[in-house]
């Protein structure tokens, strides 16, 4: 009898401790100001600055404290940020990754700590780590560019492709989308394909070097607008800017201006504001109890040419 009572008391104690701990924790959480961390790959590129600041602003507008962490394109630094975020007890992470594979461990770390992660723009190679990934539909955007590219070249000519960072999924989504159209036209010949790491200066150097080996080209497709401007500079120096058509991807200010001046043929307009704000709204909904999110949600990329340029400004619509 004594033994039985002892067991009952032990069970009751465990249940009471569990219940009170939960209550205390809930009370503390209720009193604490909720916070969102914005972890961005780099703040050296104005596009990502806009993405991070928009996400933070939306989080604040939704009633949260928000702090921006710059990973400086360094996965190790990104990992340190995640450690700090977990220790500090942030409620959600709005995340722009440095590396599709390398960032997965960081996201899993946050997940294990019970912090939801919402990816913005850059995909990570896991379907179970992030709560949701809000990503530019780079593949479909590149298809629209490729269709216009093929029309502009009348299905024939020599062209160059300048790729972004080889380890980034956007690089290949854009390249594969582009080739899913142009490769159907045997008259279009890719004479060179080289990476310039999404960097304007590298693209300038790459293009200068390619032009020496292949002076007779008709077009250049670049994986982002920074590289498109670098390639355009190289073409100006070589006196070929009037004959070679340049195609970019992003919707940056330089390229939007250049399209209106007929210097660049087209770009794919991404919408960092939409991605950043959607991530913040999703995080808010998660914190309030929603759990049913699509793992990956594409954000449409719109084709911008001199025909519809009046509808657009940098990073979005007028």
């Amino acid at each position: 009898m004594k033994r039985g009572l002892l067991i009952i008391m032990k069970i009751c104690t465990v249940l009471m401790v569990f219940t009170f701990t939960q209550c205390k924790s809930k009370t503390n959480n209720a009193n604490k100001q909720k916070t969102m961390a914005v972890v961005v790959s780099t703040l050296n590129n104005p596009w990502f600055v806009f993405l991070a600041e928009t996400a933070a602003a939306k989080a604040k507008a939704l009633g949260y404290d928000a702090k921006i962490f710059d990973s400086q394109n360094n996965t190790a630094l990104e990992s340190d940020h995640f450690d700090n975020i977990i220790v500090s007890g942030f409620d959600a992470i709005l995340f722009n990754s440095t590396d599709a594979d390398g960032s997965v461990a960081n996201v899993l770390k946050a997940k294990e700590a019970g912090i939801p992660v919402f990816c913005m723009d850059r995909e990570i190679n896991s379907n179970v780590a992030a709560t949701s990934q809000i990503l530019s539909d780079s593949y479909s955007g590149a298809i629209a560019i490729a269709k216009y590219f093929t029309q502009q070249l009348n299905k024939q000519g020599n062209y160059v492709e300048i790729l972004g960072i080889v380890g980034d999924n956007n690089t290949w989504a854009r390249s594969n989308g582009f080739h899913s159209v142009v490769d159907n036209y045997p008259g279009l010949k890719m004479v060179a394909q080289q990476s310039a790491d999404f960097d304007r200066n590298k693209a300038l150097e790459v293009m200068e070097s390619i032009l020496q080996a292949h002076p007779n080209i008709d077009a250049v497709f670049c994986g982002n607008d920074g590289m498109a401007m670098g390639a355009y500079q190289a073409l100006v120096s070589a006196g070929k800017d009037k004959t070679v058509k340049v195609f970019g991807f992003d919707g940056s200010e330089d390229v939007i201006t250049s399209i209106s001046e007929n210097k660049v043929a087209a770009t794919g307009m991404q919408f960092p504001k939409v991605m950043a704000e959607t991530a913040a709204v999703f995080a808010d909904e998660y914190i309030k109890g929603k759990r049913d999110f699509p793992q990956k949600i594409p954000v449409a990329v719109e084709l911008v040419t001199n025909k519809n340029i009046s509808d657009y400004i940098a990073y979005g619509k007028k």
């Binding site: 809000i134 539909d137 919408f271 594409p298 954000v299 449409a300 619509k317």
Partner: peptide, 8 residues
Amino acid sequence: NTLGIGNY
């Protein structure tokens, strides 16, 4: 209809 987010 559209599968994603955006204006299209």
